[in-house]
Nucleic acid binder design. Structure first.
Lengths: 247, 247
DNA sequence: CCGTGGATATCGACC
DNA sequence: GGTCGATGTCCACGG
């Protein structure tokens, strides 16, 4: 497109007519912009579940990847939404702006009908940047491999991701006495599920090694729930409190 | 406040100066409005984890309940966020607009620094409406309680949410032969996890009732994964295909 | 493509 | 406030 104005990054209308709003939304979608509409509306969802929202003021966001989000002034979660991969449509019906986001597999439809549009915006910029997240389970593993004594004095790591019939063990090694040790890492507080996981590893490895081999199982996490703690004792497993590196 | 303009529901600035943007955001927060800012920014999060986003165009939403959401043009989920209950702050630093959302327990900080602000909006309306969702697990339970024969001929429900050491059973009852039956409901296709859950209920109830009591376990869902199906057979459990009522 | 497990999960219910 | 289970979970990864 040769229109020099095409490069402009935002387009906003205040209190537009339904037709003007429809055009602005349609143009925004067309240009792969992020489109937002704020106003008084009802919301219909029909698909894996069914829902209906009475008239209220809400913020609707249509993303170029096909996602839609309907937000009220409360809560971290949208009150209604559609995942990426939908087709957005904007049209007027009985003199009102209607936004629809549709997809198949599964068949789902989100429909927002505006009694009043206070603002329509289209933002054409893009992100292009990746999130750098640290403090993960991988960081915790690095930390333990660098300083095995954090687990216990004399611990020697022998392998990471050692394979067992029950899956890959986070860290496999031996203690000061030369006994096999299975270490299961979790970056946050753990519940009974992690205990079950560790137990399966220990069982699988004992079967794998020798008939009468004993394998120690140690769960490493910042903390543990009460129920999980009891389960650990029950199954002769151990717990070491360690957090992923702070930075 | 006696300002007649106070009642206006939206306030929007295009390409404001950092100071003007700060004032608009601060006023919006003050008035319990939903505030959005779009522009080129970096994002810092530090708390339960740590993350950093390089410069990019993003849409930031600050809610009056203390939630913040940072959206790019992709994905249903925000790339960064803060849950409700935070304090929002807006200020200028080195000539740039900075938004911060802070909370304690746990100590978390989200910080968005704008290199360029394309738009600031404050929306003062409120929602006040509740979501009506149908086609839930509860609907499925109602359906089964109204027509127990849907499960199998002669089934008699005796209790819902019957408590066991493993948690509350969806429906507890007895079959035509008077044998105890545990029913676990799922509104959608189930995997191995649901089988485990049902098994825990059955085990717990067998321990609860008598030493040699036998309890039947029936999983009710629209469909079941292959692996889960095998697990059911393995553990002597049963499956009945039923969907939540359509409307 | 389906299935499985992780998440700064979120959210509600219950203790 | 914690603890646990459910979610229209979403999401990445592996078979």
């Amino acid at each position: 497109m040769s229109d020099p104005e095409y490069g402009q990054r935002t387009e906003t209308l205040q209190r537009p007519t339904p037709a003007a709003a429809r055009d602005a939304v349609a143009t925004g979608i067309e240009r792969d912009a992020l489109v937002t509409v704020y106003g008084r509306c009802t919301v219909d969802y029909d698909g894996r579940a069914t829902s209906f929202l009475e008239e209220g003021d809400r913020h609707v966001m249509l993303k170029p990847d096909g996602a839609s989000l309907v937000h009220t002034d409360e809560g971290q979660q949208p009150v209604n939404w559609q995942p990426p991969g939908c087709d957005h449509e904007a049209f007027c019906e009985d003199g009102a702006l209607v936004l629809e986001s549709l997809r198949s597999t599964p068949d789902e439809r989100l429909r927002v009908r505006f009694q009043e549009v206070l603002q329509v915006s289209a933002f054409a910029g893009t992100d292009e940047s990746e999130l750098a997240l640290i403090g993960t389970e991988e960081d915790l593993r690095q930390r333990l491999l660098e300083e095995p004594d954090l687990l216990e004095s004399g611990f020697t790591p022998l392998a990471t991701e050692r394979d067992t019939p029950a899956g890959a063990v986070d860290i496999y090694g031996e203690d000061a006495a030369g006994q096999a040790v299975v270490v299961e890492l979790k970056r946050r507080r753990v519940g009974p599920d992690a205990v079950g996981q560790l137990r399966r590893y220990v069982d699988a490895l004992e079967r794998d090694l020798h008939a009468e081999a004993t394998v120690r199982g140690i769960l490493v996490a910042p903390s543990v729930t009460d129920r999980a703690s009891r389960l650990l004792t029950e199954h002769g497993l151990e717990f070491v409190s360690l957090e992923p590196p702070a930075e």
